[in-house]
């Protein structure tokens, strides 16, 4: 499959999702269930994307697990996004040195 097509589809769909409601849609969604569904989608997407893929993200289980645990702990204490992201990397890197 051509890379140009992949990128065109990615960018096109993503743009349409943003522009249609922004430029055309004026009515408010009333259904509590649809609103609730849309509210939960981002968290469900991020969880399903992260687990189990995160365990394969560094090429070795011990470093990935160290990074995951570090990120979970740092996130639990409400540290900023960047601190958590880089903390996970640092933990994975340091674990990699010792194994």
């Amino acid at each position: 499959m051509s890379m140009v097509l992949y990128i065109a589809v990615m960018a096109g769909v993503t743009y349409l999702i943003r522009v249609i409601p922004f430029a055309f849609f004026r009515k408010e969604i009333k259904s509590v269930y649809i609103k609730s569904f849309l509210y939960y989608v981002p968290y469900a997407v991020l969880s399903a994307m992260t687990i189990p893929a995160i365990f394969y993200s560094t090429g070795s289980y011990p470093t990935a697990i160290a990074g995951t645990i570090t990120a979970l702990i740092m996130a639990y204490f409400d540290l900023p996004l960047i601190a958590v992201a880089l903390g996970a990397c640092a933990a994975a890197f340091l674990t990699g040195i010792f194994i």
Binding site: T50, G59, A71, M74, L81, A85, A88, C89
Partner: peptide, 24 residues
Amino acid sequence: PSVSSALGIVLYGMFIAIVVPAAK
């Protein structure tokens, strides 16, 4: 490779940082 493989986790770390505080 030791550095670039460790950086492979960075986006997932950010996802965790979005989900966990909200889940708490």
